[in-house]
Write a protein that binds this DNA or RNA. Structure first.
Length: 409
DNA sequence: TTCCGGGACG
DNA sequence: CGTCCCGGAA
């Protein structure tokens, strides 16, 4: 099963890098560069899996320069995983103070407890077991597994994803599963043929110091002659800018009140996480599909058309006839890829419809991905899993007091 | 001054 | 998807 670690020309000599394995010459050049240029970081001077794990947790979302200053004192304070498990969470948080993302020390503390209780204090040495531990995801399991235990797994962090996508000329989002699988396939041979931990750290180091997001130093890069993006001159376009791709999106939402209850729904729009509740909302994808030269109409006429469309949508999709009231305001909601501005209207039921008191359709039968709706009191709404925009609507447009007593539990 | 990048979880 | 946080770069 061992891969072709010997360097042979192979049948496809000059083919573009594309998605084929990393050329051995490229890998050799990168590893030589690393051997020469590697920094003597504290966590590179230990073989203790616990110390390695701590470094990887600290390095999540945090720069090397920052971690250097805190790593030593953390290990001094909690030299072994047993010490960490025994310590109080408050002590761990205090030691972590200033590093940010305080979920990490919480989960690390919980991880220590798990390792002590179920693994006898020894950090497990398989990817599957590592992945099960609190705070350890795909990246960290591969990093710890490869560095501490020599498991041949590619740890794809931002650096690694960026480099490999540039090498292969993949102008796609690194975090997509399909892309990650491609990268793993590309590196599979290389990581079998070299010490996996060294390989992972070499490529990460290259990403941190040479193949940077902006202004990459291709003239100093050992891999530039193999790099598809460099050949095409598109290295700065990879990976695609996430925040530059923000699209302005307009939505229309209705706060429908009847008998002290609000109509809420979820699972109606495919783009939303299935568990998140929201006010009935007209997507701009639906809103903008009206005929003709929409953009040439005056704004007031355009938004009146959307208001009509909103009530028609509620009637057709949810079966309620509503009377749109005054506009409450506008919620702006930044997302990774979209800047949403949501026009929120007050609304009430027209005619003699009756809302079902109590027993909203939603609360108990919360199967995933099932379109769901119901009438909720304000208190119930506040207890729902709300999308952020809905909560924003409640607090900024409806003056719901966040500090008001919540339902117990 | 603002903007941007970034793993895991729920 | 949205949140968590900070610091370096623009």
């Amino acid at each position: 099963m061992s891969p072709a670690c010997d360097k042979k020309p192979g049948p496809n000599g000059l083919r573009a890098l594309g998605q084929s394995p990393l050329p051995p010459d490229l890998v050799d050049a990168m590893l030589s560069w690393y051997g020469e240029m590697r920094r003597d970081l504290p966590w590179r001077q230990t073989r203790d899996p616990y110390a390695i794990l701590v470094s990887e947790i600290m390095l999540q979302q945090t720069r090397v320069e920052t971690v250097i200053n805190r790593y030593g004192s953390f290990l001094e304070r909690f030299p072994t995983i047993a010490d960490l498990a025994t310590a109080s969470l408050d002590d761990v948080l205090a030691e972590w103070s200033g590093l940010g993302y305080y979920r990490r020390p919480r989960l690390l503390h919980r991880l220590a407890t798990v390792v002590v209780n179920t693994y006898g204090g020894k950090i497990p040495d398989t990817l599957e077991e590592l992945l099960e531990l609190p705070g350890i995801g795909p990246y960290t399991s591969a990093a710890v597994g490869s560095i501490a235990f020599g498991i041949p797994a590619l740890s794809i962090d931002g650096n690694v994803g960026r480099i490999m996508c540039r090498l292969a000329g993949i102008a796609d989002d690194t975090r997509r599963t399909k892309v990650r699988q491609k990268l793993e396939a590309m590196a599979a041979d290389a990581i079998e043929c070299h010490p996996p931990g060294t390989f992972n750290q070499a490529i990460m180091e290259l990403g941190a110091r040479v193949c940077t997001p902006r202004s990459p130093r291709c003239d100093q890069c050992p891999c530039s002659s193999y790099c598809e993006a460099h050949a095409l001159g598109i290295e700065e376009q990879i990976p695609p800018r996430r925040s530059k791709l923000v699209k302005a999106v307009t939505e229309y939402a209705a706060v429908i009140e009847d008998n002290g209850r609000l109509l809420m729904l979820r699972g109606q729009r495919p783009s939303l996480v299935s568990d998140m509740w929201e006010f009935p909302t007209l997507d701009s994808r639906l809103a903008d599909t009206s005929s003709g030269s929409l953009s040439e109409k005056p704004v007031s006429s355009r938004s009146r058309a959307q208001e009509a469309k909103l009530s028609r949508y509620i009637k057709e999709q949810l079966g309620w006839s509503v009377q749109l009231g005054p506009k409450l305001g506008e919620i702006r909601h930044g997302m990774t890829d979209r800047r949403i501005s949501c026009h929120v209207y007050e609304a009430s039921l027209s005619g003699s419809q009756t809302t079902m008191a109590g027993a909203p359709t939603g609360l108990e039968k919360s199967d995933h991905n099932i379109p769901d709706s119901g009438w909720f009191t304000i208190e119930e709404v506040m207890a729902l899993a709300l999308a952020a925009s809905a909560r924003k609507t409640l607090t900024t447009l409806l003056d719901v007091d966040l500090t008001s007593p919540q339902s117990p539990g």
